[in-house]
Design a protein around this nucleic acid. Sequence first.
RNA 1: UGUCCAUUGGUGUAAUGGUAGCACAUCUGACUCUGGAUCAGCCAGUCUAGGUUCGAGUCCUGGAUGGACAACCA
Length: 561
Amino acid sequence: MEEKQNLNFLEEIIEEGLREGTYKSILTRFPPEPNGYLHIGHAKSICLNFGLAKKYGGKTNLRFDDTNPVKEDTEYVDSIQQDIRWLGFEWAGVHYASDYFEQLYEWAVMLIKKGLAYVDDQTQEEIRAGRGTVTEPGKNSPYRDRTVEENLDLFERMRNGEFEDGSKVLRAKIDMAHPNMQFRDPIMYRILHAEHHRTGNKWCIYPMYDYAHGQSDSIEHITHSICTLEFDIHRPLYDWFIAQLSIWPSHQYEFARLNINYTVMSKRKLLQLVKEHYVSGWDDPRMPTICGFRRRGYTAESIRNFCEDIGVAKRDNIIDYVRLENSLRDHLNQVAPRRMAVLDPVRVVIDNYPEEQEEWLDAVNNPENPADGTRKVPFSRELYIEREDFMEVAPKKYFRLSLGREVRLRYAYFVTAQSVEKDAEGNITCIRCTYDPATRGGDAPDGRKVKGTLHWVSAKHAIDAEVRLFDRLFAVESPDDVEEGKTFLDNLNPDSLRVVTAKCEPSLAEARMGVDDKGIPEPARYQFERMGYFCTDPDSTPEHLVFNRSCTLKDSWAKIK
RNA sequence: UGUCCAUUGGUGUAAUGGUAGCACAUCUGACUCUGGAUCAGCCAGUCUAGGUUCGAGUCCUGGAUGGACAACCA
């Protein structure tokens, strides 16, 4: 009884090719331009390219699409490699489009000889005007019919640096009236006297994407060049260059890019957030970058699961941000040790608890994984509980502490609130309670039940920690939808970061950043019971602990409220 | 008003001419020393008009809606 498997459209294509013997194994590639940090959208592409290859016993190349020296930098090539490794993938080979510049040049010469490319002296504006519009055909360049000899001579001199930036380009000679704009004599090379991060000053002409990408795929014998939908209209041109050059036929397939609500995914906008200091950097925990999620406390596994979970197709999609959080919660629920920390403390005094007494009680590290064992937490007469866990007069559905009501302090005792003390402004400064000594450990021998269980820390033993409470970076679902005169920046959430000083159980003093098996910094992750998942921030030191809130717990009380 | 792509519950994603399914969200209930987790259940869908066919979400034609393309960006 074979289980019926549902394949996505890419798997269908791969299996069909395998079945028909079009190829024996597959080779994919992940082709980032090193002009920014990778974001969660790239994670989808990475999981797809590497995941597909893995599933079908193939391999994946990492190839930097570095054909525009003015925007690219080695800072980005380093971060990109780190992020891919952190996600848990390893490439078969690392390549650079710039490795192929010489070959690409030779092929361009070949196309000139075949009468399929020419040097155009028009200005940028003239070229644009000559291209026509989506509904009107373009006009031929006056330089379109230069002889092969003249084109060869001019192109070589372009390479030799005889001309200024922008004075000439090499264009493919196709059809200025073609209904697909991509075919209206696309530019193959432009002159750019700029230093390239790898080739230095060797070149002053650089190939355009359309002329470089497909040929790079072909050189590497990529079987499946998987890219996002906006390149769909480029595919005929991709095929055209390969056909005219008679080179190894790579094929391009397109899928719908990932969109998530309450966030932006364009590199340009992310760069702007960084450059204009709306966030602290590319790895700000509110950023949708891979390094941002990493610092936020996301695990690589949770991101991989997320990408698997959302699937892949060709239709535009907007994924609910909660899907991402759910992936994280799923994973962390299984692996994160539980601790108690009070983020907004209010003092509690147990009047009938002996003044000098303290007890170290057993607390379970992770109820989902008994093997994680237990730890001791100190209890004493004065405690802190969460301010929102007490109401003087409470509605019926409120299960927490209120005057005259009994609740459980987790792993400790049942307590009943008796009275409150307030300051001049009427803020509660202290809640006076009594406890039942018979309920030690959290169970009543007489079998009586209690509706609520609260987390707490002993005031005398508590340690302070800075806790950064993150919320979504944007206040609206579609930050890019803006009215006239506004930008996505107007949609930033002013409350996306709140910093508090929390009271933590003493065992948290040991919380330290670590490194993973690839040497990449890895935070210590915890569940602060009832409050959410938290992790150490790189800013954290033994003297000054800093925790980031990765995400909250699901909170059904918040809905009732 | 050109070319290309897409359209299945609120959101994603399957069904490959033969019973429209799954996940997330929502809502109910059970259980619980985290209002967490877990378990059970409910609600809810083929853009539209024709055509082909014994039979259409699927194939064909028209329409509607959304998206991509007019960078010397990728």
